[in-house]
Amino acid sequence: MDTIRGGNLIDLGTLSRDAIVEVLDTAESFVEVASRTVKKVPALSGRVVASLFYEESTRTRLSFETAAKRLSADVLSLAVASSSVKKGESLRDTIATIEALGIDAVVLRHRSSGAAEQVSRYVPHVRVINAGDGLHQHPTQGLLDAFTVRRALAGRRGVEALGTGASLFEGLRVVIVGDIRHSRVARSDIDAYVTLGARVSVAGPATLLPDDLDDWPVEVATDLDAALEQSDVVSLLRLQTERGTGAFVPSLREFTSTFGLTEERAARLRPEAVVMHPGPINRGVELDSAVADLPSSLIAQQVANGVPIRMAVLYLTIAGRTKEER
């Protein structure tokens, strides 16, 4: 797809470079809203966004709801958690109930891969924005990571990020470290970076790499230390011990000693390299506490940039008209 205007956002792998750049550029125009005294624009006034989180998530949920409110949309926030599932209501019935209330878009977080795509079939006239589905995709995370990198690189060069298109990603070396196999963030990040022109490599314990890595558009960094010395962006993934992925490595200590960004490893980074993490951080597991707070860490910016990216996604999908409509 060449634009998300008037469409859904489910899988970054389906978006072209132009479509991604359009989201990043639109987000740039929303950044300054946060610095206003009245942090609101009327772009989605009168529109209704349902926020449906079947999985606990503080930051993504708050980020989406803040974004919707800054665009003056009404937010229907449903505390689903797992309660209606326990009561036996199917996803289809829950969505039908919400649709009956009159909504323009639904932001869906679900522990099942494919939930957003299924919902898009149930309610074809409602825009569906995937806020993370199982192990599959987390497209707004991929977009905000690319957005954060582009802003940082532009800032160093003293240029406005807006107008650089995808040029700053050309030849950029990105290494993604950790549990690639079970990570929706990895899948979306790889889609975003590769589509924008970056060279992506992945590193992690062999049990946490996908079996079909040969078919992925990435290289495998067999020597993490060497990869770190050559990388412009180091993206760490959360080890989701709460989902049992700790069983794929002998111990967290061994994971940290082999693939964690310890202070010693961080010393190998090039001075201009940046460190990213989608949060929440397991301090002392994926990275040492001190590394998280280094100037090269963009972790705080990632959180802040979540709002303008989600504003851009909501605005383009809900208000943006498709080419046919224009």
């Binding site: 891969s113 494919g114 589905d133 199982g134 192990l135 599959h136 995709q137 899948r187 079996d211 079909d212």
Partner: peptide
Amino acid sequence: NEGPVSSRLGLIG
């Protein structure tokens, strides 16, 4: 089935 399709879809194989 475990394979490239399950990997892309994020479904456990």
